[in-house]
Simulated assay, not measured.
Amino acid sequence: MMNIPVSHFHSWERFSESELAAMLGEFAEYGLRLISLNSGTCARLSEEAGYRAQLQRECRSAGMAVLNCHAPHMPGWELNSPDGAVLKRHLRLLDSYAELGCETVTVHAGTNDGGEPLTVLRERTARSLEALIRRAETLGMVIVLENTIFPTDTPAELLGYLKRFRCDAFGICFDAGHANLMDGTPGKRSADMIEWIRRRWNGEVRFEADTLGRLLPDVVSCHLHDNDGRDDRHWLPGEGAIDWRRLLARLERAPRLRSLQNESEHFKYGIAPRRIADCFEKLLEKNAVAV
Rank of each mutant, 00 (worst) to 15 (best):
P5G: 12
S7L: 01
W12R: 02
F15V: 10
S16K: 12
S18W: 14
S18R: 14
L20I: 11
M23Q: 11
Y30W: 11
Y30V: 07
G31Y: 07
G31N: 09
L34Y: 04
L37S: 02
N38E: 06
S39I: 09
S39D: 08
G40W: 02
R44W: 05
L45P: 01
S46I: 11
E47Q: 12
E48H: 14
A49G: 15
A49P: 13
G50I: 08
Q54A: 07
Q54E: 09
C59N: 01
R60H: 09
R60D: 09
A65L: 02
C69G: 04
H70L: 05
H73S: 13
M74V: 15
W77R: 06
D83P: 08
L87D: 10
L87K: 02
L91I: 13
R92A: 15
L93S: 02
L93K: 03
L94K: 00
L94T: 09
S96F: 05
Y97L: 05
A98E: 01
G101R: 07
G101D: 06
C102V: 04
C102Q: 05
V105F: 02
G110Y: 04
G110H: 05
G110V: 02
D113V: 13
T119Y: 11
V120W: 06
V120C: 11
E123H: 10
T125D: 00
S128L: 01
E130Y: 08
I133N: 03
I133V: 10
R135A: 10
R135F: 10
T138E: 14
L139H: 08
M141C: 08
V142A: 11
V144K: 03
E146M: 03
N147H: 03
F150L: 13
P151A: 14
D153P: 04
E157Q: 08
E157G: 03
E157V: 07
Y161T: 07
L162K: 06
C167S: 15
F170D: 01
I172F: 05
I172G: 00
F174L: 04
A176P: 03
G177A: 08
A179V: 07
D183R: 07
G184C: 06
P186F: 14
G187V: 14
R189K: 11
S190Y: 13
I194F: 14
W196F: 13
W196A: 10
W196V: 10
I197R: 10
R198C: 12
R199S: 13
R199E: 13
R200L: 15
N202E: 15
G213S: 02
R214T: 06
L215H: 01
L215I: 03
L215D: 00
V219W: 03
V220C: 03
V220Q: 02
D232W: 03
H234I: 12
G238R: 06
E239C: 10
E239S: 10
G240P: 04
R245P: 12
L247R: 12
A249N: 14
R250S: 07
E252Q: 13
R253E: 11
L257E: 00
R258M: 09
R258K: 15
S259K: 02
N262V: 13
N262R: 08
N262F: 09
E263S: 07
S264H: 08
E265P: 06
H266N: 11
H266D: 08
K268R: 13
Y269K: 09
G270Y: 14
G270W: 12
A272Q: 12
P273W: 04
R274K: 15
I276H: 03
I276P: 00
I276Y: 01
A277Y: 08
E281C: 09
E285Y: 09
K286W: 12
K286L: 09
A288T: 10
A288P: 06
